[in-house]
């Protein structure tokens, strides 16, 4: 661990207060004890199943969670603990988000104008946009398009251009691949690899572990609101014996290129999380201790894992 992470999320927790039935309210813990680290020039894929609250991680880093969210834990950028004010200053500038789709664009504003709004250098707005459009092979006239007029490929490039228009060091891509065909997925992935190769750090939040494995340097396994393991992409090679957590191993076995056996059971809902290890209700290696104690993150073989018995 000689290199300093550019972005480090420690023990993040996010909860919402919610009415369940009648006047009964509970605090829904959507993210618990989540840790990730991001290094310059690297791609970290945060992999978890759809609808499991992964996007909230991105929103927490950018400081754009809804007001009723309660957060705990720390986020460090370049070694400095981030305050909400820091996040406000950094977002868009140093940390950029690439959203899922054009639904994240103002429907009544031309895309060129939407990009220009965030460019702080007012005098050179036009040039900056022209440059970046050219770099991604977007025609000049696309600047005048409204979001609904963008084709799938154009939309992807526009969203990418938006993230790169500033000199951001960290790019967070939220589910960049759903609904895309194989060829488009590969293009998106290549774009990310290119971005990372320019020295930026990329966090790709996705449900598609296969896509993640193609380009990511590291994979963080997101489960029930926490990261069970952070592994190097290479650990997935072969029979996966280098992997640390039982769940990751099971996921690896479930890949089509391997045994293709689906992992039995489902993730617990936020309101019925196990008391101890979050994976304890599905774990084949579970012991009594797992049911009462939440395992801390430990380092094994240049990766991190939350399991009492990981080897």
């Amino acid at each position: 661990m000689d290199k300093q992470p550019i972005l480090q999320v420690n023990n993040l927790g996010i909860s919402f207060s919610q009415y369940t039935k009648g006047l009964h309210r509970v605090d829904l813990k959507v993210i618990t004890n989540l840790d990730v680290e991001l290094y310059e020039g690297e791609i970290l894929a945060v992999v978890g199943s759809s609808g499991s609250g992964k996007s909230l991680l991105a929103h927490a880093i950018l400081g754009i969670l809804p007001d009723n969210a309660v957060t705990e834990g720390e986020i460090y950028y370049n070694g400095k603990l981030l305050t909400p004010e820091d996040m406000e200053r950094l977002r868009g500038d140093e940390i950029a988000l690439i959203p899922q789709s054009v639904n994240y664009l103002d429907p009544l504003q031309q895309v060129g104008k939407q990009i220009k709004i965030t460019i702080k250098d007012h005098e050179h707005q036009d040039e900056v946009v022209s440059d970046i459009f050219q770099r991604y092979g977007l025609k000049k006239e696309v600047e005048n398009y409204y979001p609904f007029q963008l084709s799938g490929g154009m939309a992807r490039k526009v969203l990418l251009a938006m993230a790169l228009v500033s000199d951001s060091k960290v790019i967070i891509a939220d589910e960049p691949t759903p609904g895309l065909d194989e060829a488009s997925i590969n293009e998106v992935l290549k774009d990310f690899r290119d971005i990372a190769d320019t020295g930026r750090a990329v966090m790709m939040i996705t449900h598609d572990i296969q896509a993640a494995l193609k380009i990511a340097d590291k994979i963080a396994i997101f489960y029930a609101g926490t990261t069970l393991e952070t592994a190097n992409a290479a650990d997935f090679e072969g029979d996966g014996s280098r992997l640390r957590h039982p769940y990751t191993k099971a996921l690896n076995r479930a890949l089509p290129s391997n045994e293709f056996v689906p992992v039995a059971g489902t993730q617990p809902l936020p309101n019925e999380l196990p008391h101890g290890c979050l994976y304890s209700d599905r774990c084949p290696k579970k012991t009594k201790k797992c049911e009462v104690e939440r395992p801390r993150l430990k380092e094994i073989r240049d990766g991190k894992v939350r399991c009492l018995y990981a080897t």
């Binding site: 809804p66 977002r91 950029a96 994240y104």
Partner: peptide
């Protein structure tokens, strides 16, 4: 204000 596009606008530092 609670729409996705405003969320993204915030994320872009607006």
């Amino acid at each position: 204000l609670s729409s996705d596009f405003v969320l993204f606008a915030k994320a872009r530092g607006e």
